[in-house]
Design a protein around this nucleic acid. Structure first.
Lengths: 353, 353
DNA sequence: GATTCAATTGTGATGGGTCACAACTTAACT
DNA sequence: AGTTAAGTTGTGACCCATCACAATTGAATC
């Protein structure tokens, strides 16, 4: 026959056989390639009879449009890029993936060192542009650049910031840290705690800083002196070390506010080691509500951030920007929620450490 | 001037300005586009002087090759796809990402339901082929297909299986589950435990099944009767429920073998709730050595699987298959390692539960 | 029956590169 | 000086789609 497209539908396993193209389909269906293009893109102005013929040919040849070619021709790739400045905070991966796929996009993920220079980040974003990435989700709790600069570096590729400064004039989705923090502190105050120690996250991290500042502000507004405080890095071991340091320090506290659940785990471990009981001797409260938190010893009282909602908001916002460049720039807020478990209890009157 | 490429190096912020192309660079450097192509691909046969001129022009125009166009022309995309049949086992993400990038590839991640029909998976893989994905990492502990079928579905796109059946004749990287399991059981036996209960993973999961079978086999070889056993699903709550069930069951045991750390956390929680002390009353051993395990209450004795090594092996193997199709098909084994912490102790002679 | 308009289909150019091959230099060798 | 080979550069076709526009068809309107 000269052509071999008719074999493909049958000899599927032959790795030599090249994929069918638009032209192969057109030839088989006896129409022009443009008509085939219309069919696969669901465009109007194709007669029902023709459409059927083409679909039949497509099925017969097991044809699938080449997405690289489509990307080249249209400038759209249907790829979203998730850019993280620190892979350790990888919690939202699965949810992002889910929502990206749901909206018809593939998610590519990459990390860049938080210490990267402005130029390095610029180069990186440049590379993305050449991949024809449709949109970016930038998870940047350590804001290296202003919105202006970001805008410039992204070269017109729509992006959404996650965990950005509250009030920033950029497309972003954030959890209201102050709100979450207020819930936590109020909970401790309600239980009668007046001496509240703290293990903060890395203070260069926006969320960590906000949590810390809010805690201090609330306590001061109540006329209380903030308890001893140490800085952690959001990882488990730093929570362990932090708690130990606080205990050695000697300053008394009846409650411990830990800036995330991971560190809270480390803190619980240190507390147990020192023979202290939670919550009898010390109340501990975390932040995030990671899946494991409900099974800590004791189950952790914490502030939940709904990562699924975060991912959904991000992807939906991003996709709407992709589809309509006039989508208004805004910051979308999500509100954390207090989850009371067993690691907090009323302050013991008999003894205050 | 008629052309506008010379503006780009200067007015970087103009989003209207289109990217420079090969031809723009060629025009500016006064050479043919082919020569520019040679330069960006580091091919030989370009005079030093010419190369310098071209590089200068590239810099001036801030030119970057369009990767979609490259993919179309070469059939290579420099994208690797990580395909998971269950996103919950998302632990190796970060390491995979790291190694993919290190080898010059972007990593795209997608999930497909473990319940997906053969046809659905086929369609999915078909789509990947149209994306010109260079290689696949298929994380498929529930093997839906034979190697033959996989091969066929992937249509010549190289792939590496993770967590496949041991001994399978397919490119794969696996942890030697039997070895890891032996370490764990031997450890318990050495401590004097003879009544070993078990919380398994989902038995449809290859690794879970292997761990279970190995445990049973070793105990029987020792002339011991395997203790009570319940099936979990690798998630924390199922460990909690599992441990409760074992306790209610009434059959005595001095040690508890849990098929992964997450479930072990749940089990610890249940044990504490019942007033049992670990390791005094019951020894608990996990599997995986997730980052948090060292800070459980008590710190968990477990079998470490080095996810970083896994990712490295996968990506390196995959890339070598991409670069050389004659790379021999093999199964690469990684060996888990026993990490002794505080959740296991010699069996208490005074009382056996 | 001539005109108009919408529906349908096809053509040529374009997106931004790569590949195979041809052509031209230049230096080295007989 | 004539031949050879290597180094260097350029040309045309191709990868596989889309887009803008032109051409054709058919039915409806006047």
């Amino acid at each position: 026959m000269g052509h071999n497209y008719n074999l493909k539908g049958i000899i599927m396993s032959d790795p030599q056989t090249k994929r069918a193209t638009l032209h192969d389909v057109a030839a088989l269906a006896g129409v022009s390639y443009q008509t085939v293009s219309r069919v696969i893109n669901n465009q109007p102005y194709v007669a029902e009879k023709t459409r059927a013929k083409v679909l039949q040919a497509i099925r017969q040849l097991d044809y699938r449009p080449n997405q690289a070619a489509q990307a080249l021709a249209t400038g759209r790739s249907y790829i979203l890029q998730l850019l993280m400045f620190d892979i350790r905070y990888s919690d939202p991966f699965p949810a992002m993936l889910y929502w990206a796929r749901k909206m018809g996009y593939t998610l590519a993920i990459s990390e860049i060192s938080p210490a990267a220079s402005k130029k390095e980040v610029g180069d990186f974003l440049e590379d993305l542009a050449t991949r024809m990435v449709d949109g970016l989700i930038i998870y940047t709790p350590f804001p290296p650049f202003s919105y202006q600069e970001m805008q410039q570096l992204c070269r017109g590729v729509p992006f959404v910031l996650v965990g950005a400064e509250p009030g920033v004039k950029a497309p972003s989705v954030v959890f209201d840290q102050r709100h979450g923090c207020r819930l936590a502190v109020q909970h401790l105050l309600d239980l009668g705690h007046r001496q509240i120690a703290e293990i903060t996250g890395p203070l260069a991290h926006i969320d960590a800083r906000l949590r810390h500042e809010t805690l201090v502000a609330i306590l001061q507004a109540q006329g209380l002196t903030p308890g001893p405080s140490v800085e952690g890095d959001f990882e488990v071991p730093s929570g362990y070390r932090g708690a130990k340091k606080l205990l050695e320090n000697g300053k008394p506290f009846t409650a411990l506010f830990v800036a995330n659940d991971r560190m809270a785990l480390g803190a619980l471990c240190a507390l147990h080691e020192q023979g202290l009981k939670v919550p009898e001797d010390v109340s501990v409260i975390g932040f995030d509500d990671m899946g494991e938190a409900a099974y800590f010893t004791p189950p952790l009282t914490t502030v939940r951030q709904d990562l699924n909602a975060l991912a959904q908001q991000c992807i939906e916002y991003l996709v709407s920007m992709i589809k309509n460049p006039d989508t208004p720039v805004q910051q979308r807020n999500l509100y954390p929620e207090l989850i009371v478990r067993k690691s907090t209890a009323p302050v013991a009157r008999s003894r205050t450490r």
